[in-house]
């Protein structure tokens, strides 16, 4: 009767097993440092241009949107504060995670998926390597380390975009006031929230990408399906986890 629940529960179980193995391997030998470095390069350095670009525009557009609303209350001097809080708490982590999941969850899923359908994963096992150790763990470490760094960059570039819009183009406020209010607006708690989010999103993106890739079946069509599934699943989870983390921080007493 509950047959329709069997598949999702089976998938969840497989996902949890994979996640457990991947995390356990972080401290287990053998370590594949080369693979970690390569993945950090692909995921971190490779995502730089797009993260910088979107970070800049999201900050600028935020300042532009707020300029009208704030000037109604005669508070246009506070634009730095608004841009800084929204970027650091929400927009920076979520937008960067969505971009990286579009770029890398798909990349990971298609790479591992092609390896799966061409029996390279089986070959790896036959030749004495644990595919989780060799393929999943390096991607997990690289993504969860690089995403916070990318987010920090995106936050800064976004603040700079907001500055250009608010101070140079719209002349809403002075540059000293913009940067001072932007800096003062942030609590330590905001920074922690802004870094905890991308760290956890990174784990989700890497694991979902690897999971979808490793369970690919059905030739090249299957690789296409896995890629799509990876991006959709990872993006949805980014929003769900974002809500949960935000709720935790909102209900937390101030530090």
């Amino acid at each position: 009767m509950l047959d329709f629940l069997k598949k999702p529960i089976q998938s969840l179980q497989d996902f949890v097993i994979l996640a457990g193995k991947a995390v356990r391997n972080v401290v287990r030998k053998p370590h594949y440092f080369d693979d970690i470095a390569i993945q950090a390069d692909v995921i971190g350095v490779g995502s730089l241009p797009i993260v910088v670009l979107t970070g800049f525009f999201s900050g600028a557009v935020m300042a532009l949107q707020m300029s009208k609303a704030l000037s109604q209350y005669g508070a246009s001097g506070q634009v730095g504060q608004i841009v800084s809080i929204t970027l650091v708490r929400e927009l920076g982590p979520v937008l960067t995670a969505l971009l990286v999941s579009g770029r890398n969850a798909s990349g990971i899923a298609s790479e591992l998926g092609s390896m799966k359908v061409t029996e390279q994963i089986d070959a790896m096992r036959a030749l004495g390597t644990d595919p989780v150790q060799k393929l999943v763990t390096p991607r997990l470490i690289a993504t969860s380390a690089m995403l916070p760094i990318l987010t920090i960059l995106s936050d800064f570039i976004g603040l700079f975009g907001g500055y250009l819009m608010a101070c140079v183009l719209l002349k809403l406020t002075t540059s000293t006031q913009y940067w001072t209010t932007a800096y003062r607006a942030l609590d330590f708690q905001d920074v922690v929230q802004g870094l905890a989010k991308p760290f956890i999103f990174g784990i989700i993106i890497a694991l979902v990408g690897c999971f979808e890739g490793l369970r690919t079946s059905g030739g090249t069509q299957g690789v296409g399906r896995a890629t799509t599934a990876a991006v959709v699943t990872a993006s949805v989870w980014v929003f769900v986890i974002d809500l949960i983390i935000t709720q935790i921080f909102v209900s937390m007493p101030a530090w």
Partner: peptide, 23 residues
């Protein structure tokens, strides 16, 4: 277990259908 199998598999060579070389 998979870890124990690695030692046994060292004594076996396998050629996969399409070669399955790491591309």
């Amino acid at each position: 277990k998979e870890k124990e199998l690695f030692a046994v598999r060292q004594q076996v060579g396998i050629l996969f259908q399409e070669g399955a070389l790491f591309d």
